[in-house]
Design a protein around this nucleic acid. Structure first.
Length: 412
DNA sequence: TCTGGGGTCCTAGGACCC
DNA sequence: TCTGGGGTCCTAGGACCC
């Protein structure tokens, strides 16, 4: 068991990593010093703010805001496109560096980690946190925040107290002074909806929540109510875990234009399945549940899923099933976004051909293997399916985080 | 507010079984 | 069948995170 827990959070991660990369390339500008955001491509309708610099923050620019809106707040805003490969590399390098301090490292997201120490006094912990923070700045050229406490929740809350380039503590006797005065929405796991509900009940600060009627919270918010009540009181008994097994994999994409014809929709679904099935096989998993998600032009979203009577990792098989689901449930409304995902995963061990499976499936599996290895060698688009030839549709669509960091677990 | 993409977990309702 | 109740599985949607 660890007695000191630290939360490490890269300040404006995408911006900082992009800046460090640009410096390597010898560029003069430092995007951290001016109002700048990392943002998607507006022409392709991916125009939102993924990260913002501290000067941009002063203009009230928020992550998730549309670029249009951000520009209205700051007309001379610099918009830099994202480069995920750089972020993945940077994230990995940081993680490896942290590993030189302790073997107890839990990756929380691409830019956040928890690390644990045994047999460290509080004073030693705080000293070490400062040392780690400063050495990261020196070694990598960007700043981090480090929160120090005795559990993950308190370490994370401490790390958020004041940014950037800071170490803060939040030990149990400091909760009342440091945590309770904060607005309730700053508590981990209190989002927009929960904030409104809590406010309606007269709960505005974390302190209000900590002293609220537990039964009321439980009755109206269920398991989530119990959890945030515990969090407001600094209680979190979660331990350091190895990367949890993957539970679902999926890809989705907002389309350049609203799609109204079935053939185009099918082609997009196939390109998404190409990516998802590939990632599934890379993870040496097979799936039993397949899903499709459809968002129409008015942002109405539906999802439909189907449980198969067998496990599969075959692109063609997954595609056929998802396509059928789509055909069954699409009502013809113009489509803004399409998504596919697979769940009910199991490690690939003994592949058993079920009587429900297509007899060609064995051949298709061989084909998948060949395609995978060609793509690995020569790149994603070195081999593409015929339907994509001469079409304005990417033959393989969606992000591949190309490294194993677990997704968010809602329970720390 | 012309609003991305990757996830996890929880809940409510219905089907089905005994 | 105008009848009870508990359990499991499945599905769709919604909340949250970065």
């Amino acid at each position: 068991m660890s007695n000191i827990v630290m939360h490490i959070d890269v300040n404006s991660a995408f911006l900082a990593w992009t800046a460090a990369y640009e410096e390597q390339l010898g560029r003069e500008r430092d995007i951290r010093e001016v109002p700048a955001v990392i943002g998607g491509n507006e022409e392709n309708r991916h125009g939102i703010v993924l990260a913002r610099s501290i000067p941009a923050k002063k203009y009230k620019i928020q992550t998730g805001m549309s670029l249009m809106e951000a520009r209205q707040l700051c007309p001379n805003l610099l918009v830099v496109p994202p480069n995920y490969q750089v972020y993945v590399r940077a994230s990995k390098a940081l993680r490896e560096y942290l590993n030189t301090y302790t073997p107890i490292v839990e990756v929380f997201s691409i830019d956040e980690c928890f690390i644990g120490f045994t047999d460290l006094s509080r004073d030693e912990g705080v000293k070490l946190a400062h040392k780690i923070k400063d050495s990261i700045k020196e070694k990598f050229g960007y700043t981090v925040n480090i929160g120090v406490s005795t559990n993950k929740l308190l370490a994370k809350m401490a790390g958020d107290l004041e940014k950037p380039d800071k170490c803060h503590t939040c030990f149990s006797e400091e909760i009342e002074e440091k945590l309770w005065p904060l607005p309730v929405e700053e508590l981990f796991m209190v989002g927009r909806k929960t904030k409104h509900k809590l406010n309606r009940w007269g709960i505005y600060t974390i302190g209000d929540l900590a002293r609220a009627d537990y039964r009321l919270l439980h009755r109206f918010l269920g398991a989530h109510g119990r959890m945030i009540y515990a969090y407001a009181n600094g209680i979190d008994s979660s331990t350091f875990q190895p990367a949890p097994p993957m539970k679902s994999v999926g890809n989705s994409s907002t389309l350049k234009y609203d799609v109204t014809d079935r053939d185009t929709a099918h082609a997009i679904i196939l390109s998404l399945v190409e990516m998802t099935a590939w990632r599934l096989r890379e993870g040496e998993m097979m799936c039993k549940v397949v899903r499709v998600g459809i968002k129409d032009k008015d942002f109405n979203y539906i999802s439909r899923q189907k449980k198969l009577p067998y496990f599969t990792d075959c692109t063609k098989d997954i595609y056929k099933n998802i396509r059928d689901l789509f055909d069954k449930h699409w009502d013809g409304r113009p489509i803004r976004q399409l998504g596919v995902s697979v769940a009910d995963l199991e490690r690939t061990q003994f592949k058993q051909l079920s009587m429900f499976q297509d007899r060609n499936m064995l051949n298709n599996e061989k084909l998948d293997k060949v395609i995978d290895s060609i793509r690995e060698k020569y790149g994603d688009t070195s081999i593409i399916r015929g339907v994509f030839a001469n079409r304005d549709i990417s033959p393989i669509l969606g992000g591949y985080p190309d490294d194993e960091y677990p997704g968010m677990t809602s329970i720390l």
